[in-house]
Design a protein around this nucleic acid. Structure first.
Lengths: 351, 351
DNA sequence: TTGAAAGCGTTACCAC
DNA sequence: GTGGTAACGCTTTCAA
């Protein structure tokens, strides 16, 4: 039988309230009595108030729920996600709050259950394409939800369209006209391969949709028709999937002079694919990523930098202390096109 | 006012129990009634039983607490930790259990508070040198604690000493006699620099202590005195710290013919330091790491492979379903010395 | 400074 | 198939 407040109270010969005070409001009783209580507790193996009971009573769970795109076991492999989490964790720590990684399993029902059952004070939704039900379940909880990918009441994100438009303009300025785009979650069956995206607006994944839109607009402004652009679906956001997807662009004639990707991880895969074919990035084929993860710099890759750490931090602050002014509840962070060696003028002579 | 079970019960005209059953034991009532209840709930904005109250009643928190070495914001940067977490997350998902990252702040009191206040069913202690108090607090909770670095009742780990002994023997076989070791957490002040470690046994960090012991034993067996070995402290487990520490070995005469490190991250830093000095790994200076993280293979680095993913998985299983037989409560996983190009014969002629 | 009493929102048991 | 009743372990007035 586990000791409870009452056990300790009985032992010392005081009431529950006094023992409770000994832990939660030390100033409410004499130091000696407190010491006696704490001693008794130690002796009885009582390690302090039961967190769950305390939560129930106080109405505070002491944790932030984190909702991920995919299996939580994947989350840690994406450097961008890791940065985001670090920022979030930092703020959580400062507020004596834990981070609860919610297990969103593959089946819909399981995911809903998990969201409804999470003992948390709010949710940070990191990136949940296709999990609208889970998101709705989070909303239904009636606790704050910070969304970084869709527009909700609490939002922290970037101007996705403007960001990729800038990248697209850079490409157009360099004279590229044969372009391929690699994106994840753009084919319904989640396979890797070329896919036709007649209307970007209909894409299910927020991130891919917005980023493709930016490119499309930049291309259009330069007179490049969207229908001429090769769109390739990657089965997931990883370097390997990026390389596999790139093959569909690189192994065709005429070969595109530029291959852009919606994330750095995918773009690094594109670089891998170039290397495997002895093609020189920025000379034979230009490559652009998105995120500016550490490996991007090492690979001398042109990309769009977004402040992942800040996004996490702000998400945490928004959640822990939601501003009253609606205007303050939506934060749009700046991005920056970082030009490195992976982009260069379109080599007109190449086949 | 948030709706509760009672609110819904009143609305439908049934008792609380029936509403509770509608959610938790659907087979206990007629489908029609259940539908009516669920509809009413939706209408009222009731999103299901309060997780905290449910936890209190059922005695199950639905989460595993994860205790990290350092600020949880650091945890994600160590590839080994990430692998471990992935394994753990996998098992947690399968058991509909969340992962609560507990904010161990820098001050002792804050850490204790956090551990005592975490609403979890058990703890996985990943690597907490210097946080003995936090560990004791976890133990005191009276819930299962899986330890991977110290010997507790539930344990999953490797034979640290035998692992590095094998690495040390490899080095001795290659004829190295001027050797430096880079390790983190071996100087009391956590600074980077050469440090004297007269008795390995007294080191505070479990991992560093065990791994140095293995090396020491291997060296001793080959007739190399421990006092002749250069021990260098790294201020933390990162590539940068590894490079900084390596400088203390490489910039002296005579230069060691081998520099080993207690983790791959540190060892990769050593390789960086070699590169900066135009020294060839495996030719001019041999390097050995520990863990076999993905980058190690890419760097052609000799290292000790340990099954990080499995460690995480087993930690989860041990926690969620502690075996009765004490023998099964301690799992020692195999390791393997992976010899790559970063080690070679001691170049007798080098200075 | 201390204690009694009233919940917090749920679930489990046992009658009906 | 359904509904009381009694916990689960704690915190918080409020009165003494």
């Amino acid at each position: 039988m586990k000791p409870t407040l009452q056990t300790v109270a009985d032992r010392v010969g005081v009431s529950r309230s006094t023992v409770s005070n000994a832990y939660s409001r030390p100033d409410q009783l004499s130091p000696e009595l407190r010491e006696r209580i704490l001693d008794a507790a130690r002796e009885l193996g009582y390690s302090g108030p039961n967190p769950t009971a305390r939560s129930l009573r106080s109405g505070r769970a002491g944790a932030i729920g984190v909702l991920f795109t995919t299996a939580l076991s994947i989350a840690f492999t994406d450097p961008y996600a890791v940065q985001f989490l670090r920022g979030l964790a930092e703020v959580a720590e400062d507020n004596r709050t834990g981070l609860l990684l919610v297990p969103l399993r593959d089946d819909d029902e399981g995911a809903l259950e998990a969201v409804r059952n999470a003992a948390v004070d709010g949710f940070v939704v990191y990136c949940v394409p296709g999990w609208y039900k889970a998101m709705e379940a989070a909303w239904a909880r009636g606790i704050p939800v910070v969304n970084s990918d869709h527009f909700g009441s609490l939002f922290v994100g970037i101007d996705e369209i403007a960001s990729t438009r800038a990248a697209g303009e850079h490409l157009m300025r360099l004279g590229h006209r044969r372009v391929a785009i690699v994106a994840d979650y753009i084919s319904p069956d989640r396979r890797t391969g070329e896919v036709s995206v007649p209307s970007v607006e209909d894409l299910g994944s927020y991130v891919s949709r917005e980023r493709l839109t930016g490119y499309r607009d930049a291309f259009a402004a330069a007179g490049l028709e969207w229908s001429e652009v090769i769109t390739i679906s990657a089965a997931g956001n990883s370097r390997e999937h990026g390389a596999a997807a790139a093959a569909y662009a690189l192994d065709r004639a005429p070969r595109p002079t530029a291959v852009v990707a919606t994330t750095d991880l995918l773009a690094l895969g594109v670089l891998d694919a170039l290397a495997a074919r002895d093609l020189r990035p920025g000379r034979d084929v230009s490559v652009i990523g998105f995120d500016d993860i550490p490996d991007a710099a090492q690979a001398h890759m042109t990309t769009v930098r977004q402040p992942a750490l800040d996004r996490g931090r702000i998400a945490g602050r928004l959640l822990l202390d939601p501003p009253d002014d609606p205007a303050d509840r939506r934060v749009v962070l700046p991005t920056e096109l970082v030009v490195r060696a992976s982009t260069g003028p379109a080599s007109t002579g190449s086949v």
